[in-house]
């Protein structure tokens, strides 16, 4: 089996310690949480670091899901399985149930964290698409204090984020508003594979019309893609198959997939549309069912 190049291992006991280590070690250090993206890359020697800072002991501090009236706050060390098992989170955002069942596999989900997923910034990563869909904001902490950035600001390109070398993503905030639901669909070649295309949708109704709608697509561009034009198209209109087909067409034409082993560009554009249509329809159905 392949093995990583030599590095020094350090363990942070709390957020302050982690930031202290990052400040001291600079860009030669990398944080490891679940490790399921980072360690394989290090084993294949696609990534090498002098120091690895283990932040799993921060789970006590940053492993939480807190529901307030206007938002849900999730600690960055919250593990996939904890997201999947959080009744209040799933009640507010069923998209997490949909997504978490198709992310990697259950054993990986025991270790992988929300923060780690977002910081990996893989364009195919599912929770990034979920957070884009839900208009999440990310709380980044450094020694100078905290700052809050939107998902659009957080991801700066494939595998690049707004988190500085001496900073730590500590929390994700999801705004809550009534009258909505959410859904996620992923097409993959096989369970556990990265998405060919995946799509999240969140939609809020006001009486018979759509008050707000958001879509987040993965694997169809350099970052997970939210398409604001879809919200503009849908707002104020009554949901219908035809309207969602139109939204799908907008998704197909607005994304920028490339042909690879997972599929042709044409197919991915088709999927962007098809999954947009499906997830929006699921949102409406869920609102009607009260879930």
């Amino acid at each position: 089996m392949q093995v990583p190049a030599p590095f020094e291992y350090a363990r942070a006991g709390n957020v302050a310690e982690a930031i202290g280590l990052l400040e001291r070690l600079g860009s030669s250090a990398k944080l490891v949480a679940g490790g399921h993206s980072l360690l394989p890359m290090m084993k294949l020697r696609l990534a090498n670091f002098e120091y690895l800072i283990d932040i799993n002991d921060l789970h006590g501090e940053l492993g939480y899901i807190t529901v307030a009236s206007d938002q849900i706050r999730i600690g960055a060390m919250t593990r996939h399985r904890e997201l999947l098992e959080s009744a209040p989170l799933l009640a507010a955002f069923p998209i997490f149930r949909d997504a978490e069942h198709v992310i990697a596999d259950p054993v990986v989900r025991n270790r992988g964290t929300l923060g780690g997923s977002l910081c990996q910034a893989d364009p195919s990563e599912d929770l990034s698409a979920v957070c884009t869909t839900l208009d999440a904001s990310c709380v980044i902490q450094g020694s100078g204090g905290q700052r809050v950035v939107s998902m659009a600001e957080f991801h700066r390109g494939p595998y690049e984020t707004a988190v500085g070398d001496d900073e730590l993503l500590i929390e994700i905030r999801l705004p809550l508003r009534a009258g909505g639901s959410s859904a996620y669909e992923k097409v993959e070649r096989r369970a556990g594979d990265w998405a060919v295309v995946s799509c999240g949708a969140a939609l809020w109704m006001d009486g018979g019309t759509i008050a707000e709608a958001r879509v987040g697509l993965a694997a169809v561009g350099p970052n997970t893609t939210g398409i604001p034009a879809i919200g503009e198209l849908l707002r104020g209109k009554a949901p219908s198959d035809e309207l969602f087909r139109e939204a799908g067409a907008l998704a197909s034409s607005s994304c920028s997939p490339v042909t690879d082993l997972r599929g042709t560009e044409e197919y991915k554009r088709h999927l962007a549309g098809e999954l947009t249509r499906r997830t929006l329809s699921t949102c409406v159905a869920r609102i009607k069912q009260g879930v």
Binding site: V32, H36, L39, V107, V108, N110
Partner: peptide, 30 residues
């Protein structure tokens, strides 16, 4: 056992603090 380099095969699953983990993707130090 181990059967891959990329956490895909699962032949290395052990428990850590009562939960199954892929031991090829956990450092002994962790």
């Amino acid at each position: 056992h181990w059967g891959c380099d990329t956490s895909n095969c699962g032949t290395c699953v052990v428990w850590m603090d009562g939960e199954p983990v892929k031991s090829c993707t956990v450092l002994a130090a962790m």
